Simulated scan of single mutants.
Amino acid sequence: MPDPHTSAHTQIVGGVDTHTDTHHAAALDHHGRVLGDDEFPATPDGCAQLLSWLSSFGPVTTVGVEGTGSYGKQLATLLRRNNIEVREVSRPNHGKSDAIDAINAARTTLCGDGTATPKTATGPVESIRALRIARTGAVKARPAALNELTNLITTAPTALREALRHHKGTALLTACTALQPDTTALADPTHGTMLALHTIAERITSLNQHIRHLDKHLDQLVAATAPTLIGLLGIGTDAAGQLLVTAGDNPERLHSEASFAKLCGVAPLEASSGRTDRHRLNRGGERQANRVLHIAVVVRLRYCPRTQAYLQRRTEQGLTKRDIIRCLKRYVARETHTAIMKDLALATA
């Protein structure tokens, strides 16, 4: 119930601990006083009830939500739609209760430490993210299925093994798909193995089709969303898609290109001591974004005369190749951030 001592002018800060089935919310006033906490279903109606409950204490200014990209995504979208600022709050890693979590999320939001602006996930970048997940799953499943096929052929009955062992690639898949086991005689290892090989070959063929299908649509969507980004040397569809997903549909949440570099793990860290004045590689940030920036640098070192000249000049100055690659990754991060901001501004317009 609303606190009778709160006034209509009291600004309310909320905190929400999100889960699959329920969300636990807490309300604080601008002095940090706990006004109440309650639990709501993690459904559209439950999220609306949660917002109504928070608003009953007064005008809600900001809500800290745990897991805005997963369990709290639906709630975060509703809050933004009602012009309420949403802050991403990290989940605690110690034993506690849902009520304590919600109160701590609200307090963290009130003081402004340890929070971030979440991705809106309302534009083409969210579609790219979903398609990339589907493609990555298919790409990971394919070598596992190929290994199963190879191992089964190795241990197959002699006649079957000899008939298949010299086939490679597409020919092997075609031969295995063409196998016609007698399903009434599966007690015979030959027919049992034939059915297994036939099934796995069909799975691999299907995965290949899924990957090609997703590649086609990702090529079109990424090119339409970020033509400037994909036009940069060393940035193909996969790299551009990953960098877009890292930035989100609202890359302005990163404030600057330095924020983007830090998010990608390419912001230099001080490693100076005594007479040594240097920086070192950053082991933090999103590793997939760091990976595509590294690949872009490797491509430029091979094909870009300017990058090759930079490598030679910095080597003569005494830098190691590892340090030079670190500097180049920071440069590419700056260049890609500029391209992303330009492309998404045009997409929004």
Rank of each mutant, 00 (worst) to 15 (best):
P4K: 11
T10Q: 11
D17H: 05
L28I: 04
H31P: 08
G36W: 05
G36E: 04
E39S: 14
F40D: 02
P41H: 09
G46R: 06
C47Q: 13
Q49H: 12
L50C: 03
L51G: 06
S55I: 08
F57E: 07
T61A: 14
G64C: 05
G64Y: 02
V65P: 06
E66N: 06
Y71P: 09
K73N: 14
L75H: 04
T77M: 11
T77K: 12
N82A: 14
E85N: 12
R91S: 10
N93P: 01
I100A: 13
A105N: 07
R107D: 03
T115A: 06
L131C: 07
A134F: 10
R135M: 12
V139Q: 12
K140A: 15
A144L: 15
N147F: 08
T150A: 15
T150F: 12
T155E: 10
T155F: 09
T155G: 08
T158S: 13
E162G: 04
L172D: 02
L172M: 10
A187C: 15
T190A: 12
T193V: 09
M194F: 02
L197H: 00
I204V: 12
I204Q: 01
S206R: 13
L207T: 09
N208F: 09
H210Q: 15
R212N: 13
L218D: 02
L218P: 05
A224V: 04
L232A: 05
V245A: 12
V245I: 15
G265H: 01
A267T: 00
R275V: 08
H279W: 01
H279Q: 05
L281G: 08
R283H: 15
E286M: 15
R300D: 02
P305R: 01
R314T: 01
T320C: 03
R322P: 07
R322L: 12
L328D: 00
K329I: 02
A333K: 00
E335L: 08
